[in-house]
Protein backbone atom coordinates (compact mmCIF):
# COMPACT_ATOMS: atom_id res chain seq x y z
CA UNK A 1 0.00 0.00 0.00
CA UNK A 2 1.31 3.46 -0.89
CA UNK A 3 2.26 5.80 1.93
CA UNK A 4 0.79 9.28 2.21
CA UNK A 5 4.03 10.83 0.98
CA UNK A 6 4.10 8.48 -2.02
CA UNK A 7 0.52 9.46 -2.95
CA UNK A 8 1.35 13.15 -2.62
CA UNK A 9 4.48 12.70 -4.72
CA UNK A 10 2.47 11.00 -7.46
CA UNK A 11 0.25 14.09 -7.64
CA UNK A 12 3.07 16.68 -7.45
CA UNK A 13 6.42 14.99 -8.14
CA UNK A 14 8.29 18.29 -8.16
CA UNK A 15 7.95 18.86 -4.41
CA UNK A 16 9.39 17.23 -1.30
CA UNK A 17 6.33 16.83 0.91
CA UNK A 18 8.29 15.61 3.91
CA UNK A 19 9.81 19.08 4.32
CA UNK A 20 6.65 21.19 4.62
CA UNK A 21 4.27 21.84 7.50
CA UNK A 22 1.65 23.55 5.34
CA UNK A 23 1.31 22.34 1.76
CA UNK A 24 -1.17 25.08 0.83
CA UNK A 25 0.73 28.02 2.26
CA UNK A 26 3.91 26.67 0.69
CA UNK A 27 2.19 26.44 -2.69
CA UNK A 28 2.69 22.69 -3.05
CA UNK A 29 -1.00 21.85 -3.38
CA UNK A 30 -3.92 23.86 -4.70
CA UNK A 31 -7.65 23.30 -4.44
CA UNK A 32 -7.72 21.16 -7.62
CA UNK A 33 -4.98 18.97 -6.18
CA UNK A 34 -7.05 18.61 -3.01
CA UNK A 35 -9.89 16.99 -4.93
CA UNK A 36 -7.41 14.64 -6.65
CA UNK A 37 -5.79 13.82 -3.31
CA UNK A 38 -9.12 12.92 -1.71
CA UNK A 39 -9.90 10.61 -4.62
CA UNK A 40 -6.47 8.95 -4.44
CA UNK A 41 -6.73 8.46 -0.66
CA UNK A 42 -10.21 6.98 -1.07
CA UNK A 43 -8.88 4.51 -3.63
CA UNK A 44 -5.65 3.65 -1.82
CA UNK A 45 -7.24 2.99 1.57
CA UNK A 46 -10.74 1.85 0.54
CA UNK A 47 -12.48 4.67 2.42
CA UNK A 48 -14.87 7.49 1.60
CA UNK A 49 -13.73 10.73 3.20
CA UNK A 50 -16.76 12.72 4.28
CA UNK A 51 -17.46 16.02 2.55
CA UNK A 52 -17.26 17.87 5.87
CA UNK A 53 -13.71 16.61 6.29
CA UNK A 54 -12.58 18.00 2.94
CA UNK A 55 -11.07 21.21 4.28
CA UNK A 56 -7.44 22.30 3.91
CA UNK A 57 -6.77 21.90 7.63
CA UNK A 58 -7.08 18.14 7.24
CA UNK A 59 -4.59 18.02 4.36
CA UNK A 60 -2.04 20.69 5.21
CA UNK A 61 0.78 18.28 6.11
CA UNK A 62 1.55 14.58 6.39
CA UNK A 63 0.61 14.40 10.08
CA UNK A 64 -2.78 16.03 9.43
CA UNK A 65 -3.55 13.59 6.62
CA UNK A 66 -2.52 10.63 8.73
CA UNK A 67 -4.76 11.88 11.55
CA UNK A 68 -7.64 12.17 9.08
CA UNK A 69 -7.01 8.62 7.87
CA UNK A 70 -7.02 7.42 11.47
CA UNK A 71 -10.42 9.04 12.00
CA UNK A 72 -11.61 7.04 9.01
CA UNK A 73 -10.37 3.77 10.52
CA UNK A 74 -7.08 3.55 8.63
CA UNK A 75 -3.70 2.97 10.21
CA UNK A 76 -1.35 4.59 7.66
Amino acid sequence: MSTVVEILTQIRPEFDFSQSSDFFEDGMLDSFDLVTLVSELDKAYGISIDGLQIVPENFQNVAAIEALLSRNGVVP
Binding site: S31, L34, V35, S48, I49, D50, G51, V55, P56
Partner: peptide, 19 residues
Protein backbone atom coordinates in the same frame (compact mmCIF):
# COMPACT_ATOMS: atom_id res chain seq x y z
CA UNK B 1 -22.52 19.96 2.74
CA UNK B 2 -22.90 17.81 5.84
CA UNK B 3 -26.44 16.98 4.78
CA UNK B 4 -25.20 15.43 1.51
CA UNK B 5 -24.39 11.76 2.06
CA UNK B 6 -20.94 10.78 0.82
CA UNK B 7 -21.12 7.03 1.13
CA UNK B 8 -20.32 6.03 -2.40
CA UNK B 9 -17.56 6.48 -4.94
CA UNK B 10 -20.02 8.34 -7.14
CA UNK B 11 -19.92 11.53 -5.04
CA UNK B 12 -19.37 14.45 -7.36
CA UNK B 13 -18.37 18.08 -6.84
CA UNK B 14 -16.91 20.99 -8.75
CA UNK B 15 -16.38 23.14 -5.67
CA UNK B 16 -12.68 23.95 -5.58
CA UNK B 17 -12.91 27.19 -3.64
CA UNK B 18 -11.20 27.22 -0.29
CA UNK B 19 -12.72 28.59 2.90
Amino acid sequence: IGAVPRATATYTTNLYALR
